[in-house]
Simulated assay, not measured.
Amino acid sequence: MRRLAAVAILVLATLTACSDDTADKPQPLDDWTQVDVSPAEPVTLTAHDSQLLVGLRHRGAKVVPELMSYDSTGKRTPITVKPNPASPYAFEAIWYSIAYDGQQLLALGGASGGAHSNTRWTVWTGTPQTGLVEQPQNFWTFGGQTAGDLFSAVRTPSGGALLGTWGGVQTGNDAMVWLPQRDGKWVRQDPTKTALQSTPSLLVGPGFGTTLGDSIVLVGSQVRLAPNTVAQEAAVWRSTKFNQGWTRIVLPDPGSRSQANTATCAKDCVISGYVDGQLAIWQLDASGTAKRLQGVPSVPVGDKDKLPPPILDGGKVVQVVAQDNKVKVLTGRDGQWTVQDALGPEGKVTDAVLMPDHKLYLIAGTSLWYTTLS
């Protein structure tokens, strides 16, 4: 009898332990719905209130890029896209960035072309009601021997801006802001003697832009150059108002090598990137004080990996990542995180947004998916 009692206790303890392990392990997100956008492919997501804008491309076909608007019921409405007939690259453009403030649209498109297959940029403005209309630019607006890169279109209460890089006033590349003129032309702004300028001892390298109220926020890295020393550190550049009063903030705990990839700002900014090849997330408050969030799960992130912007969900941060083409959803706050496997979406995750009804939309591979977060 004693032996049977001991066996029973052992079995009960084992079952209890297994039950506790199961209870502690976050359940996978398995209730996903794929949104049919065929024969096109989704490339960008832009959200404002309950309206979701999905930028689409037609791979291998010279078809005008598409833009679709979805309301809270899932009703899809196409937004007219009007290229200029004299602008051949507009008909091949792929959406790189679309900004929407609830009234005005500003979009950045690009298509490879020319002898060196460099990106030929196109800029588009309009409203969901009137459609997106291309604003033709001359070659030197975004091209030429000192051309850098473009990566983000943004809108603030003071107007729209295009963000990128350009050949440095002194050396390397400077961070660059383009602003519109009354005639529809976009003009590079002078970064001389601002935090956007590279120097012989410090190279600036932004790669993504967003807004915080009337401020523009750029994230990327700076490279400090000294005799026998090169240090790459995640950094943020922020204006006090539109294109004025730029400051540079080096993000803390940069390790041996770090980079800020993307950011989302509301009252504060949450920034995602990597430190020493692993996912890192920082928080930057309105005063300019930054901290690196602790306990972030270990996820490899390389130089060429794309991270969708982090999502702010109340007091929590949601970061979607892909590891070995398997999608994972990280949720938490400083020091407390959970990781849930996404059963359905597969491939590299390039964009993600959370709508007011708690539907999480993401682009994985060449497909658009959504689920509802609890």
Rank of each mutant, 00 (worst) to 15 (best):
M1H: 08
V7Q: 00
S19T: 08
D20K: 03
D24K: 13
P26N: 11
P39A: 08
P39T: 05
P39W: 00
P42F: 00
A47R: 10
K62M: 13
P65C: 09
L67Q: 05
T73P: 02
K75R: 15
K75G: 11
T77M: 10
K82I: 11
F91H: 15
A99F: 06
Y100H: 12
L106C: 09
A111R: 10
W124A: 05
Q129H: 07
G143K: 06
G143Q: 12
Q145N: 13
T146C: 07
T146D: 14
R155A: 08
T156H: 01
S158R: 15
A161G: 07
Q170D: 14
T171H: 07
D174W: 00
W178M: 03
L179W: 06
P180I: 07
G184M: 08
K193A: 15
A195H: 07
P200M: 03
P200H: 04
P200K: 01
L202E: 15
L202F: 02
P206S: 13
L212D: 12
L212I: 02
S215G: 08
L218F: 10
N228E: 12
V230K: 14
Q232Y: 01
R238T: 02
R238C: 05
L251D: 01
P252A: 02
P252S: 01
G277N: 06
G277A: 11
I281V: 13
W282D: 02
W282G: 02
Q283E: 07
G288K: 12
L293F: 02
L293E: 00
Q294A: 15
K304R: 13
L307S: 02
L312I: 15
L312A: 13
V321F: 10
Q323P: 03
D324R: 12
V327T: 15
K328F: 13
T331E: 14
G335E: 09
M355K: 05
D357M: 04
A364D: 04
G365Q: 09
T366W: 00
T366Q: 11
L368E: 07
W369N: 07
T372S: 10
S374Q: 14
